[in-house]
Simulated assay, not measured.
Amino acid sequence: MRAFLLSNSTCSGNTYLNHAKDDLARFLDGIDELFFVPFALADVDGYTAVAARFFAGIGISVTGAHRVSTGLLSQAPAIFTGGGNTFRLVKALHETGRMEAIQQAVADGASYLGASAGTNIAAPTLSTTNDMPIVEPPSFSTLGLVPFQINPHYLDPVPGDTHMGETREERIVQYLEENETPVLGLREGTWLRCEDGRYFLEGMERGARLFRRGAEPAEFSAPAELTSVLTRG
């Protein structure tokens, strides 16, 4: 299984995916076509055009997954799922049969890329998304490409902030009160590269935070290999 899981697609002061451009080009070396999954936003054609402009710059053509059959999608050499609302994305994938098509493609060797919502769905469920449930998917189950949950856009508490709502850490702890699956909080500007059963944290040094039920969060700076901690039973 090969996956490139970005916390976010756009960093402050940068253009779409540009903060990871060189790494994406290396990851996709030898691939000249990918299918883009745009269902997390309402304007699927406009969203596909945004992705197509970026990938054209590294020599890769893009076809919108909404424009092809599930059979063709399941044979894709590479698939990129963009960010937006995770509930809307998961609802569309389940209702169109594309969740299974993506799983089949990856099982057959396709490279999977995700950003934000597209990264969240690489986990077993959408339960650690940050999004509002603007629609109701038939299931919270997602791709299950990795055996842990992911929280993209992970935010640390701001010292002195008077906001009284729950912090991201508190929400993840609440998830772990009801579930045992660990959660990797990916800070913006970071990504997880998954290849041959190994997991590499890359991107900005501030890295990620790993939450386990009944344990203190573990802090990791990029670059780092996280295989042993993410595959521990």
Rank of each mutant, 00 (worst) to 15 (best):
M1D: 10
A3L: 08
F4V: 11
L6Q: 00
L6D: 09
S7I: 04
N8D: 15
T10Q: 13
G13H: 10
N14P: 01
T15E: 13
Y16I: 05
L17T: 14
N18R: 15
H19N: 07
D22T: 04
R26C: 13
F27H: 11
F27C: 10
G30A: 08
D32P: 00
E33G: 00
V37A: 10
P38D: 11
L41F: 01
D43W: 04
D43T: 03
G46T: 09
T48N: 02
A49T: 05
A49P: 06
V50C: 08
A51M: 15
A51E: 13
R53D: 15
F54W: 14
I58N: 14
S61Y: 00
A65S: 12
H66D: 05
S69A: 03
T70G: 06
T70E: 12
L72F: 00
L73F: 04
L73Y: 00
A76H: 01
P77D: 05
I79V: 15
F80P: 08
G82R: 13
G83A: 00
G83P: 11
N85W: 12
F87Y: 15
R88W: 09
R88H: 02
L89N: 04
K91G: 00
A92I: 03
A92W: 11
L93R: 00
E95P: 03
Q104E: 14
V106Q: 04
V106H: 13
G109K: 09
G109E: 11
G109M: 10
G109L: 13
S111R: 15
Y112P: 05
Y112S: 00
L113M: 11
G114H: 08
S116I: 07
T119H: 05
N120M: 02
I121W: 06
A122P: 05
A123L: 06
T125N: 08
S127G: 12
T129V: 12
P133F: 11
P133Y: 14
E136P: 04
P137Y: 15
P137T: 09
S139W: 14
T142L: 04
T142S: 15
T142Q: 10
L143T: 14
G144N: 08
L145Y: 12
P147E: 15
F148S: 04
Q149H: 08
I150H: 05
P152F: 13
Y154T: 06
L155Y: 07
L155W: 15
L155I: 01
D156N: 09
D161Q: 01
T162S: 03
H163E: 15
G165W: 13
E169S: 01
E170F: 05
R171E: 14
R171G: 10
I172Q: 02
Q174V: 04
T181H: 01
V183R: 02
L184I: 04
G185N: 08
G185D: 06
E188K: 06
E188H: 14
G189N: 02
T190K: 02
T190C: 09
W191N: 00
L192S: 02
C194F: 13
E195T: 12
E195A: 07
D196V: 05
R198S: 12
Y199F: 14
M204R: 01
E205K: 11
G207I: 07
A208I: 07
L210E: 06
F211R: 08
R212G: 03
R213N: 06
R213V: 01
G214M: 11
E216G: 01
E216Q: 09
P217Y: 12
A218L: 14
A222H: 13
P223H: 02
E225G: 05
L226G: 03
V229F: 01
V229D: 09
L230T: 08
R232F: 08
